[in-house]
Design a binder for these strands. Structure first.
Length: 285
DNA sequence: CAAAGGTCCTGCTCGC
DNA sequence: TGCGAGCAGGACCTTT
């Protein structure tokens, strides 16, 4: 599920239950996520209060206060969460009855002093739940990340510069998290269509002007998707926190063989970096 | 058997 | 020869 807008929407959905709440208990039923949940994490988390929740790329950072018990900064830190390919959260309320039934792939719960159960589900187990010591933003996985696509530095000049000395396809450049975070397979395809760039074009063969257009497309499309997610989130705590893509607005992704909305040409699907890549051969050069 | 919306890690090649 | 950077492919999983 999760691309950047979905992660942002997830965060919005979780804040009302978690931000400022005390984590009474972490219950882990399956430790084997992408990286195994470290033994003893339950103890580290217990009794701490969530002081901040933020997103970096597709990671969710949950900052926790010092446990009053250990005053040293040795153990201050937070949780690092990634949803992988199939992760999602639901928020349940204690005494919800049938909704609270644990299903297959419900790997862990965060239980708060407000009576909420924040339940993580992830069939493919590509997600993670990690302890980050100290400042979570300085964790190895976070520190090395590229810039945020919604930051001002993300622009045509930046992309053009990043492409120098490289030969890979522009779509793979765009999906490289060391350069820019949060642009996944769907939004890479959509942004490239919007800016009229062929996904397989060598990234060093694109002018700064065209990169400017691409950066604008990325920003516009992500922003629209986040807004849409935000507007459908009302029931996050009651139902399934599945924001879902705004499928009716996808121009190329998943539309192989169908007519391009702009020119009528059939949409193609090629493989790039082992990922399916949809584009219009006429609109995108 | 193929494919699914992620991304880290390994090992190869290339150029200095 | 040695080193770093860039890059492709493998790895991790279950479900449809």
């Amino acid at each position: 599920m999760p691309e950047l807008p979905e992660v942002e929407t997830t965060l919005t959905g979780l804040r009302p239950s978690l931000l400022g709440a005390k984590i009474v208990r972490l219950v882990v039923r399956e430790r084997r996520l992408r990286w195994h949940i470290q033994s003893g994490l339950e103890g580290k988390v217990r009794g701490r209060t969530v002081t901040a929740m933020r997103r970096r790329g597709k990671y969710i950072l949950i900052h926790l206060d010092d446990n009053e018990l250990d005053c040293g900064d040795l153990d201050c830190g937070g949780l690092l969460i990634h949803l992988g390919m199939s992760g999602s959260f639901r928020v349940l309320t204690k005494n919800t009855g049938k909704n609270a039934a644990i299903e297959t792939h419900d790997h862990y719960d965060l239980i708060t002093d407000r009576g909420h159960i924040v339940r993580y589900r992830d069939p493919r187990r590509f997600g993670c739940l990690l302890w980050a010591s100290g400042d979570p933003t300085q964790h190895k996985l976070i520190r090395a990340l590229g810039i945020e696509p919604l930051d001002l530095e993300f622009n045509g000049k930046y992309l053009h510069h990043a492409a120098k000395g490289r030969t890979l396809a522009v779509k793979n450049l765009l999906m490289n998290g060391k350069i820019v975070v949060g642009v996944g397979n769907i939004y890479a395809a959509e942004s490239l269509f919007d800016s009229g760039i062929h996904p397989a074009r060598g990234c060093h063969r694109i002018s700064e002007q065209r990169y400017r257009r691409l950066a604008d497309s990325v920003r516009t499309i992500l922003t629209a998707a986040i807004q849409q997610g935000g507007s459908t989130i009302r029931d996050f705590a009651a139902a399934d926190g599945q924001p879902g893509y705004f499928e009716q607005e996808l121009m190329v992704y998943g539309r192989e063989g169908k007519q391009c909305y702009t020119c009528g040409t059939r949409i193609r699907n090629i493989t790039l970096g082992q990922r399916s890549t949809f584009y219009c051969p006429r609109c995108q050069r």
